[in-house]
Design a protein around this nucleic acid. Sequence first.
RNA 1: GUGGUCAUGGUGUAGUGGUAGCACAGGGGCUUGUGGAGCCCUUAGCAUGGGUUCAAUCCCCAUUGGCCACCCCA
Length: 480
Amino acid sequence: MNGRTSATTAGKGNAPGRTGSSPRGGASGWSGNVAQPDVLKPPSGKLPQLLRGMKDILPVDQPYWNAVLNAVDAEARAFSFEYIEVPVLEATSLFKRSVGEATDIVEKEMYTFADKGGDSISLRPEFTASVARAYIEHGMLNQPQPVKLYTVGPLFRYERPQAGRFRQHTQFNFEVIGEAHSIVDAQLMLLLDHFYRGFELTPSFQINSIGDANCRPAYVKLLKAYAQKHKEKLCEDCRERLQQNPLRLLDCKQPGCHEVLRGAPQTVDHLCEACKDHFVRVLEYLDEVDVSYVLNPRLVRGLDYYTRTTFEVWASEDETGAQAALGGGGRYDGLIEQLCGRPTPAVGFGVGIERVVHLLKERGFTPPLPAPPMFFVAQLGEPARKRALKLFNDLRAEGYRVAEAFSKEGIKHQLEVANRLKVQFALIIGHKEMIDETILIRDMESGIQEVLDFAKVMPELRKRLEKLQANGETSPVPAA
RNA sequence: GUGGUCAUGGUGUAGUGGUAGCACAGGGGCUUGUGGAGCCCUUAGCAUGGGUUCAAUCCCCAUUGGCCACCCCA
């Protein structure tokens, strides 16, 4: 698959934000006589705390994250997307040229700084620009088109944090590059719809078309003229928008502006024939697969590269709360060209995983928990401890998940741990068993114990698990 | 970036102008061969910095952070 997640192994591989390499060079700090006295000195001062707007994703949340990430992988497989990973840092100019210099994201929300060589670099505030860059840079236009890519990872925006809004958040993104056909737009939304339905979420799809280079300039002119007439009634921001980015007038939430813009010309009424046709077909395809949507003439997005189809996914129909947007995307037919690639049509979307997880918790979704270990190895006394360690290793090599508390003394305590872990069988080795060359197996549920020949444990254990499995009581025995 | 609101152990909470209880969680124990119960012990906290005061966790100010609205967005 994608080499990122092994889909079923919880906690492995899909730790958000640190996909990829671990610091392998770390050994150097511990070798040699490099002074490192700070660690040994008594602490002075406070623990440097979590940066504003940052969030630890703790083990308790991992089941939710795994559920989401597994669903993402499943959708990717079902719709034939390939996984790509792009760097967290990019040249600042990449985002200026794609997202747009006058957008809020670039203007005031980017983490931008000069690196040691003096180049201006930025923490990525979104994915599409990087994926488009990768498409061009690696000549993916020579692959069969369209190129369908998906990715998962952290994005950074310097905003004022709120519930559901962080300075580092995680998105999954799907992009289809090199295909202009309207059916692709619909397919992406179908994928999303399917994703949400998998969690029994039925969010509201808001959709609009904002035209293309052909028809948008004329429309913007119209809109501008209209707004100009009502300038006195517009808020200060909107007067600014009138100059900078007139399309954004449409989604101002100030009641006054809202009122004024009610009578404004709508994008959908001023699309050129090609754009109109495209939009109508997208809607037809959506109807065909029963993806319900709401036509939202005020939906314009905060990134400049969008053309034609734009859409957002809202947690509920009436988007009152500010963080209701669960995802958003659209077509960006001009972006590749703008980044110096050949003219290449494309569509894509992004979904904020934190928000999805938040909603899942709110709705009482119970994520699948990782299966408990099958065995717990308990020991009494030092010789038994050694044998137990060996047994642990052998079981592990056979593919079993095995728990233990080797550092503990006392069987009582160890069984307590086994119980807490909901382990199926405890395997006990004590003084007596050492002498008899046996092992004690205890069914944790019934409390029934049996003595097994130590030499024959492996086949015996396998037999037991197979029996359990036949009764449908446990997860499959791993293949030998 | 603007406005509002809040801040007590890891978590959830009580309380006071004379430096703090409780519950859960964590650790240890109830004679180092038997878990799910119980009992006992124990770790751990007034976000930070100033000010007022004999005395501040409490009052005031600032900072930091969370949350809410705006902005923007996922």
